[in-house]
Amino acid sequence: MSSGAMYAAHFGLKQRPFTLLPDPEFLFWSPQHRRAYSVLEIGILSRAPITLVTGEIGSGKTTLLRQLLNRMEEELTVGLISNATGGRGELIRWALNAFGIEVPEDHADYVDLYQALVDFMVHEYAEGRRVILIIDEAQNLSAESLEELRMLTNVNSNKDELFQLILVGQPELHDLVLQPQLRQLAQRVAASFHLGAMNEAGVRDYIRHRLRIAGGDGEEITADAVHRIFDSTDGIPRLINQLCDLSMMYAWTDDEEFVSAETVDAVLEDGVFFGAQLLGGAQKEKQA
């Protein structure tokens, strides 16, 4: 039995409540997450050419995307790209792969690749389906790649657009889209939202929610401990998960019934919570 499973049993839980894997079962609908999800849905329903959602690392963007993918309607053909990189033409290959379109590797130049993707969009439209490409971690794309995507949003049939684009990434994606050379792309962004960190009340509700989903009563982590966790994570879900997971493990090894503020302090003092160092570095960068 793993240590995670053992500490879960210690607290009477059926599973670990604070893993780092995006899991729609644990999705916590904070006011900000609800708004971000609404923007994604509105972008799809309104046939927005481009929808843009940004957020800090670990703010829950990927979990929202998984929830969105689970609820997609049948008349939508959806492709997902994560962590795409590369220069001209390579993003088209990423898109073709996301939709399962096979193109001969040898002899296919950029025009052939582009036309294969356009032909696919036209075919899906003729079958009554809209094509949506979702790009996660889109801040890694170059301005040239983003311009390629913008040109795809120009493909249409009569008054109907055949292709919608959803860009999701870290805050620098917003700045990238606003660069002068991407002015035409920015003008096609019909809906955008920035997913920020949670406040202390949100962190408290988030922690209780995950504990209850895991089979607990939500009180396994005390109010004082929640306050320490909020102060040490800046309200970022991924960091909250890390610190809560470590704190529950510490409480289990000490045979404590609850995670107390002293438990969280022990984790922080031992330096095993790497997120504290990440936040410290980010704060120094802002000050500089």
Rank of each mutant, 00 (worst) to 15 (best):
A5S: 14
H10Q: 11
Q15D: 07
T19N: 13
P22Y: 03
F26S: 07
F28C: 05
W29H: 09
H33D: 01
R34C: 05
Y37V: 04
V39D: 00
I44T: 08
S46L: 13
S46H: 09
I50S: 02
T51S: 12
E56A: 13
G60M: 05
G60Q: 04
T62Y: 03
T62G: 04
T63F: 00
L64W: 06
R66M: 02
E75Q: 15
G79F: 01
L80Y: 05
A84L: 11
A84D: 07
G86M: 13
R88F: 10
L96P: 01
F99N: 12
D112K: 10
V118K: 15
V118A: 10
A126I: 07
D136E: 12
L141I: 12
E144F: 08
S145Y: 04
E148P: 07
N154L: 09
V168G: 01
Q170F: 08
Q170M: 15
H174W: 12
H174E: 13
L176R: 10
P180T: 10
Q181H: 09
R183T: 12
L185K: 04
N199Q: 09
N199H: 10
I207A: 03
H209Q: 06
I213R: 15
D217Y: 09
A223D: 14
D224K: 11
V226F: 00
H227G: 07
T233S: 08
P237V: 06
L239M: 13
C244N: 06
S247W: 03
A251N: 05
D255T: 13
F258P: 00
V259A: 03
V264I: 08
L268H: 04
V272L: 07
F274W: 04
L279F: 01
L279T: 04
Q283F: 11
